[in-house]
Amino acid sequence: MKVRVLVSLKPGVLDPQGRAVHHALEGLGFSGVESARIGRTIDLDIADGTSDEALTEMCEKLLANTVIENYRIEKLD
């Protein structure tokens, strides 16, 4: 089973990297970019039948730091 975990900074948490990318896009002449925020994609190949609880635990214990990050789990197949 292929699972994609998308980790993003919580709203309100300053993202200096995203801000620098935003400024760089503006510098390249792209207009209309309101903001850029950088996250992380983690693709997992896991045993069929792995429970949602186990996936949630993986996210909470390691893949995301829930003090600053949100995560979303997407099943790809």
């Binding site: 948490v13 300053l14 200096p16 990297q17 620098a20 730091n65 003090v67 600053i68």
Partner: peptide
């Protein structure tokens, strides 16, 4: 220590990069 939850908060990339 923050990642182990022995201390509150998190340490993020420096604001000035």
């Amino acid at each position: 220590l923050t990642e182990a939850r022995l201390l509150p908060g998190a340490l993020m990339r420096n604001a000035g990069q």
